[in-house]
């Protein structure tokens, strides 16, 4: 796999922008030799992270950096929206029981898709690091 140059994207909360970013990410990961199932997890999570940041956190865009590694990839999301840690909170570990708790499903997607995940608030920015491996 190619580990030389990080792949970077800037994505707004517009749905067409998100879908375009998903296709670019999918293409990059396929080209870099990341297994399909691992790439799919990263692509699905992109939508949820960007929507959270832009629709709920007030961010205008999310910066994404992708590092391809031997066993998969690491995706780093950064935005200047309000502080929000998707890895903590009541929906992070258990599935919502009610159909009215739809939002919690997306947080599960972020938490459970990644093999390793960290969140930090750095210089007024959210920084979410998700590692995807097979």
């Amino acid at each position: 796999m190619d580990t030389a140059v990080p792949f970077q994207l800037r994505v707004s909360g517009d749905t067409s922008d998100i879908v375009a970013a998903e296709k670019k990410l999918q293409g990059h990961l396929e080209e870099a030799g990341v297994p399909g199932i691992v790439a799919s997890r990263a692509v699905v999570v992109l939508e949820e992270v960007v929507l959270n940041a832009c629709r709920h956190g007030g961010a205008t865009e999310v910066e994404i950096e992708v590092l391809v590694e031997d066993r998969g990839c690491t995706v780093i999301f950064e935005d200047a929206g309000k502080a929000f840690d998707p890895l903590s909170g009541q929906f992070a570990e258990t599935a919502p029981a009610s159909m009215d708790d739809v939002g919690g499903r997306g947080l599960l997607l972020i938490r459970r898709s990644a093999t390793r995940s960290t969140y930090a608030r750095v210089e007024e920015r959210n920084r979410l690091v998700l590692e995807f491996t097979g």
Partner: peptide
């Protein structure tokens, strides 16, 4: 071939309406 988080919400909304 692909369902994202918004798509899941649409499916759940449909099920909720039916329920």
């Amino acid at each position: 071939p692909f369902v994202g988080s918004l798509g899941i919400r649409v499916l759940i909304s449909g099920a909720r309406v039916l329920q």
